[in-house]
């Protein structure tokens, strides 16, 4: 029993970060119909900026806050400089632009900070507590708590504040929003700023867990199954699906793979099923696209872009 509890705890901790990254992608998609492949790139950049600022002598927490601000500006700038010029371009072209951004960001970080893994400054106190028979470090608790808090905060912001209302309005029907005096383009800029800030924060949190490297940008790919499962236009969906997928991965690694391998080893010549965990989310995505393309929480009709 403890074993399963341990697995779930581990899954929830990583899942909460997935949710944070996916949330940013959904935010942009809802508002402008753009799928941002570069989300992982923003996460990585945010982490490197935090690192660079601590090297300049800022305290880790202050550096984190400053880096989130820097990323918000970067996000808004991206929208203003690139996406605003591509309003009439096909979806595919916009998708490729974000892919180009991802390549650019990686090369940029490579040029400045080099290809090697870097020890990330301690944002949270060192130490751990025992939860369900597993030692959970303060890092993990802080990352998970912060991710969850922010995700819930965003849902509330979207639902209850005037700004959130304008965002929803712009997302729902751009023309109608324009007619009642909402500056839609600016709303899209705001969405990009918020999304990049989230990514920057998520990246920094991830770096406290996994140390800093260019590989951090691959978190963006992990987020794709999350948004498809949750529904491309559902913030709630990405939160739930993020946690779900985190747990699913942990269960695959800790329970499913060993069970499968024990069976195969005793009955066949197959010894290992390899890194099954990396393909399970995508199998689920394939299934979901066939059965319910709009995702668990998504609204119908979004699959026809």
């Amino acid at each position: 029993m403890t074993f399963y509890l341990q697995i779930v705890t581990a899954g929830l901790a990583t899942g909460s970060v997935y949710a944070l990254i996916a949330l940013g992608i959904v935010l942009i998609y809802k508002c402008s119909g753009v799928v941002n492949f570069a989300q992982g790139g923003y996460a990585m950049l945010g982490a490197y900026v935090t690192y660079a600022l601590t090297r300049l002598g800022l305290s880790p927490i202050l550096a984190l806050v400053a880096s989130v601000a820097v990323m918000a500006v970067t996000g808004a700038a991206t929208e203003f400089l690139l996406l605003r010029r591509m309003l009439k371009a096909p979806v595919v072209a916009v998708m490729m632009v974000t892919l180009g951004l991802l390549i650019l960001f990686k090369a940029f970080c490579l040029a400045i900070w080099g290809p090697d893994q870097i020890a990330f400054p301690q944002l949270f106190p060192v130490g751990s507590v025992e939860m369900g028979g597993i030692l959970v470090t303060y890092n993990y608790i802080a990352a998970a708590a912060l991710s969850l808090l922010l995700s819930v905060g965003f849902l509330a912001f979207y639902r209850y504040t005037p700004m959130g209302l304008m965002q929803r309005c712009a997302a729902d029907n751009g023309r109608a929003a324009l007619a009642i005096g909402i500056h839609v383009s600016n709303q899209v800029s705001v969405a990009w700023a918020m999304s990049s800030a989230l990514a920057g924060l998520g990246g920094s949190l991830l770096a406290t867990l996994n140390s800093l490297s260019l590989g951090l940008s691959s978190i963006g790919l992990v987020a794709f199954p999350v948004i498809v499962l949750g529904g491309l236009n559902s913030l709630m969906g990405s939160l739930v699906a993020g946690l779900l997928l985190g747990v699913l991965e942990a269960v695959t690694d800790g329970v499913l793979t060993p069970a499968l391998e024990t069976y195969l080893r005793s009955h066949t010549a197959i010894y290992s099923v390899g890194a099954l965990q990396q393909v399970v989310p995508y199998l689920l995505v394939g299934l979901m696209l066939m059965v319910r393309p709009q995702g668990i929480f998504g609204e119908r009709g979004t699959e026809r872009v």
Partner: peptide, 16 residues
Amino acid sequence: ALRDMAFGLLIILFLL
């Protein structure tokens, strides 16, 4: 490092 940078930048510039 510039190799990849040029690659990414050119994709963006062409699309734009």
